[in-house]
């Protein structure tokens, strides 16, 4: 018995694609202009158009947290927002948190506690942790674990991630 089926019967292609326009994003304190169509996500804008590849794509569906960036100080999944929607917002990526020469305290703590292995989820973890610190809602270990649960680490570095965050959380600001 054989039946037939057709994949993608989604109707004819759109005649005209949405035009490319200029979008201005303020990233890590610098205004960047890019020519994109509305369908470009903030994540793809960073990685493919601005060469800011520190922000990672781990699922592209808001299910892993690798793409976490800070928008106006709040952590979000950059894969689930359009770049055009973030015009005028203040975007901070991992590249804006610190550099190899001048590491952010969280970046140093992640190294010290070996809070990563393959490193792919790490920028998202660190951006997420940076926001967690400013949110001020996580005080106990259990709360850190819960409020870091939007960032999956398949290497399983969670205990070290929590230790790194606790160290920064419990270090009085100089």
């Amino acid at each position: 018995m054989s039946t037939s089926t057709t994949q993608a019967p989604l109707g004819p292609p759109a005649i005209a694609l949405a035009p490319v326009g200029t979008v201005t994003l303020k990233i890590n304190g610098v205004e960047r202009q890019l020519q994109i169509a509305p369908w470009t996500t903030l994540l793809d804008a960073l990685r493919e158009y601005l060469d800011l590849t520190g922000t990672k794509k781990g699922c592209d569906h808001g299910q892993c947290g690798a793409c976490t960036v800070l928008v106006d100080g709040k952590r979000i999944n950059s894969c689930l927002t359009l770049a055009v929607m973030k015009e005028g917002a203040d975007i901070t990526t991992i590249e804006g948190l610190g550099t190899e020469e001048k590491l952010h305290p969280l970046q140093q703590a992640f190294i010290d506690h070996d809070a990563f292995q393959c490193g792919y989820c790490t920028p998202g973890q660190i951006c997420s942790a940076a926001a967690l610190l400013t949110e001020g809602k996580a005080k106990t270990t259990a709360e850190i674990r819960e409020l870091m649960s939007g960032n999956i680490c398949r290497c399983g570095a969670y205990t070290n991630i929590v230790a790194a965050i606790e160290e920064v959380l419990n270090t009085p600001k100089a």
């Binding site: 590849t53 520190g54 990526t93 590491l103 490193g119 792919y120 920028p123």
Partner: peptide
């Protein structure tokens, strides 16, 4: 500590894509 740590925590480490 991992010698490539600084590259990984700053996003400087480049993966295939």
């Amino acid at each position: 500590s991992r010698v490539e740590g600084p590259a990984k925590v700053t996003g400087a480490a480049k993966y295939a894509a």
